[in-house]
Amino acid sequence: MYALGAYAFLHVPLLILAIFSFNASRFTVWQGFSLHWYAALAQDRELIESAVNSLIIALAATALAAIIGTLAGYALWKRGSVWISGSLYLSLVTPEIITGVSLLAFFQWIFRYLHLRLGMHTVILAHAGFSLAYVVVVILARMRTFDPALEEAALDLGATEFAAFRRVTIPFLAPAIAAAAMLAFTVSIDDYVITSLVAGVDSQTLPMTIYALARRGVNPMLNAVSTIIVVLLGIVVLLSERLRKA
């Protein structure tokens, strides 16, 4: 009963949002079904451009985080370090605003030596950075169920360390890598706080555009774009859950 209540509390607002994205009126009074706001969405240059930016950033950051995080998780499993795994969990609980400010300070300091400016690349690096911890945690959890004798068996059968890692450990990790990547993707695509701090003029992301639009007043187009995001992320999360359990 309580679970049902909690579930409703979590999801009823999303449901209302989805319903009103199909409303013919721009106000919260139902006036009939319409795809009007979805059509308007397709016409909005700013929204589309920022959505493309968000996708590029999320894909690049996910790829970076997945590769580095997999290697880091594997290394931590091989030779565990309380300090490193501890600092990983710390980075998971660090308030975003602090992560954002520290990244901004870090980039500003780097820019004193390298003539670069804030832009897509800094957003990608920032996103790869904060999603790295998620990837490592997922990989480490999967490695804990790995039988080290499997790698020894590969070495025993003539594989070098690298071949054993590539042909035995990576296939074992594959579902976890995919799940971790999807997790990284979802935390990257909807990040606002950190992104708004480290983004340059050319790297407006979808959450930033939505936030700017929402501040200008009620706009049912936002209902439409939010519905699309929720549905897409829902699919990603479901897939990653299924893979994580595989």
């Binding site: 004798a149 020894e152 068996a153 070495l155 025993d156 059968l157 594989a159 360390e161």
Partner: peptide
């Protein structure tokens, strides 16, 4: 010498068969 340069092979206690490969794949591995 590393294990992969020794002409000895091991049958492990819990067999350590590669779970992502078939019987054929396991036997072909070496």
């Amino acid at each position: 010498l590393p294990p992969y340069r020794r002409n000895v092979n091991t049958v492990f206690q819990n067999y350590a068969l590669f779970p992502h490969l078939t019987v054929q794949g396991n036997i072909e591995f070496g």
